[in-house]
Write a protein that binds this DNA or RNA. Structure first.
Length: 550
RNA sequence: GCGCCCGUAGCUCAGUUGGAUAGAGCAGCUGCCUUCUAAGCAGCUGGCCAGGAGUUCGAAUCUCUUCGGGCGCGCCA
């Protein structure tokens, strides 16, 4: 960030002096090939059209002025097509280490969000059964996105929405009720859409043990009790699973509370006043097709009950009313058909497109011994999140989920994630951290102590190729964290960490840290301490431990 | 039929607000432990970025189209 800042400020000033405006299309970024310098910019190429001069001439103009504006720059090269390649002085890069030290756990954070309020709604699984592996992916992504947004300066709330007002919950109560009847020795007929999981029987057994007279209650009353009890049991289980997975929510919001306070009716009124609803065939419709949906949607069915969509609109109105500027929903990709109508609703209530984002989480294929395992809550056959993390550990599972972009399907190979080998990227990164800690311990044994803050004199022995490579990486962390946050793409952090770890391992095998010369040893230790600090911050963004020893 | 996502090395995938010679890991082959953790490092092999057309200084990236895969498309949730 310090490098891009320095260049962009200098270039903007120069462009201004040339009487031109700063082009949006100009990109200042590290080149793919480090031979091209530390930072590269296509400015001359972009500007040449506006000022009607060949790129080369424009580039030379800019080159002549850069030294005075950007003191950290050692040289500027003009590449063939009109790229400007900037190389910074070693001293400039050494300044990154004190930056990291001063930043501490905040190094890499930014003010990109400027205190805007963001809300990430994720998991939100109906409490009709335990979380499975697919929910786990949504949980990992939603949690990491919230961490990223916080780090990028947003005031972020994590929310779980509980659909406790609909038919599914009644069905849950009914399923438990039937199992209780069955346990009491009555003949029961099992309907098609019944919840079959073993956990339903467990809950039934538990309830029966507490209250043996339960089966003789009137069915209506009995089912209500069952539903209430089962939902709370399952919800407690979900909360525990999430806690074990190091995922937390600030707000648990129930659909029922929304309905009870009349939010749905007032949403209907709001839409009606805007002339966006109409009656047809005895139902109440919302004209979502006016906002890009392919057809209009029903809000209140002809039998008087509400659709899922109706309370969702009320819920989203409520979100914005609570002051969130940016509302982000993490959804399973099988719900993508629901996105256009939700977008339509957002537009209808007068919010901008960019105030609302949906992050679709693609399917997770669980693979064991090379064979896919199929999952279905209804059929009661599934691998629960709790089972998986018991097998693999939280860190390995989280990293696997966050290593791939969320909108492509993921093969989750149980045997692989279980393995504590380098096939498993999480250990590669953690090992880099542990390795540094190990060197630090050795240094301590040898009586080397590090000052809390380094300075130019202490760092003077640094400057070889590998030193600079590491420093460039550390400097890039803030840019990476910020762009990952804005793109809602936590996997960028995982990849960054892999690259940083690779540089560290390479460094480690090429340069002895604890050399005889104490000044060099201390300088290298200070560099490694900075690397360790950034690894830690990065791992924290994806919610993975940074172990001191492995 | 309509809509969304995807197609990049043998395998799993990065790279997609248009930028230089398309990158990693795994698998395969070579080397490197009397020195701080070999859970590691260095190197080799491997590509018509699914095919085609267009947009322009410039396309894996944008548009159109064909093919192939996944998922949705109810007054279900």
């Amino acid at each position: 960030m310090r490098a891009t800042n320095e260049i962009s400020i200098a270039l903007k000033a120069i462009v201004n002096e040339m009487g031109l405006s700063w082009p949006e299309k100009a990109v200042i970024a590290p080149p793919k090939d480090p031979q091209h310098g530390d930072l590269s910019c296509n400015l001359a190429m972009v500007l040449s059209k506006e000022c009607q001069k060949p790129p080369r001439v424009v580039a030379e103009d800019i080159c002549g002025k850069i030294a005075a504006k950007a003191p950290g720059v050692a040289k500027v090269d003009i590449a063939g097509p009109g790229f400007l390649n900037f190389t910074f002085k070693t001293d400039f890069w050494l300044g990154v280490i004190p930056d990291v030290e001063r930043g501490g756990a905040c190094y890499g954070s930014s003010k990109a969000g400027a205190g805007r309020k963001a809300q990430v709604e994720f998991v939100s699984a109906n409490p009709t059964g335990p979380l499975h592996i697919g929910h786990g992916r949504g949980a990992a992504v939603g949690d990491a996105v919230a961490r990223l947004l916080n780090f990028a300066g947003f005031d972020t709330t994590r929310e779980y929405y509980i659909n406790d007002a609909g038919r599914q919950m009644r069905l849950l109560g009914f399923s438990v009720w039937l199992r209780i009847q069955e346990l009491a020795g009555k003949e029961v007929e099992i309907p098609e859409d019944f919840y079959r999981g073993e956990y339903i029987v467990d809950i039934a057994r538990e309830m029966l043990a507490r209250n043996p007279s339960l089966p003789s209650l009137p069915p209506d009353k009995g089912q209500d009790i069952c539903y209430e009890y089962a939902m709370n049991q399952i919800l407690d289980g979900i909360k525990k699973d999430l806690a074990d997975f190091k995922v937390s929510h600030n707000v648990w919001y129930t659909e029922k509370s929304l309905v009870d306070k009349g939010a749905v009716e007032s949403a209907f009124n709001e839409l009606a006043e805007a002339g966006l609803t109409y009656d047809k065939d005895g139902a109440l419709w919302f004209a979502t097709s006016r906002f890009g949906d392919d057809q209009d949607r029903v809000l209140r069915k002809s039998d008087g009950t509400l659709t899922y969509f109706a309370s969702d609109i009320a819920y989203h109105i409520d979100k914005y009313r609570r002051g969130f500027d940016w509302v982000i929903n993490v959804l399973g990709a099988d719900h993508h058909g629901y996105v256009p109508r939700m977008r339509a609703a957002i537009a209808a209530i007068g919010r901008k497109q960019e105030d609302f984002d949906v992050l679709l989480i693609q399917l997770v294929n669980l693979i064991e011994k090379g064979q896919p395992i199929s999952m279905s809550t209804r059929a009661g056959k599934f691998e629960t999140l709790a089972d998986v993390i018991r097998d693999t550990g939280t860190d390995a599972a989280r990293f696997m989920f966050l290593y791939r972009k969320s909108d492509s399907p993921l093969d989750f190979d149980l045997d692989l994630v279980k393995q504590r080998t380098m096939d498993n990227p999480v250990y590669y990164v953690q090992y880099a951290h542990a390795r540094i800690c190990s060197v630090m311990r050795r240094a301590e044994e040898r009586g080397l102590t590090l000052p809390p803050e380094s300075d130019a004199v202490l760092l003077a022995p640094l400057g070889n190729q590998e030193d600079l490579t590491l420093l460039r990486f550390l400097e890039r962390f803030e840019d990476t964290a910020e762009s990952a946050a804005l793109a809602l793409a936590p996997h960028h952090i995982s990849h960054y960490l892999m690259e940083l770890a690779a540089c560290l391992h390479s460094y480690y095998s090429k340069h002895q840290v604890l050399v005889d010369d104490n000044n060099t040893a201390i300088a290298r230790l200070l560099l490694l301490r900075a690397v360790k600090s950034v690894l830690r911050n990065g791992l924290d963004l994806v919610g993975v431990e940074a172990p001191e020893i492995m």
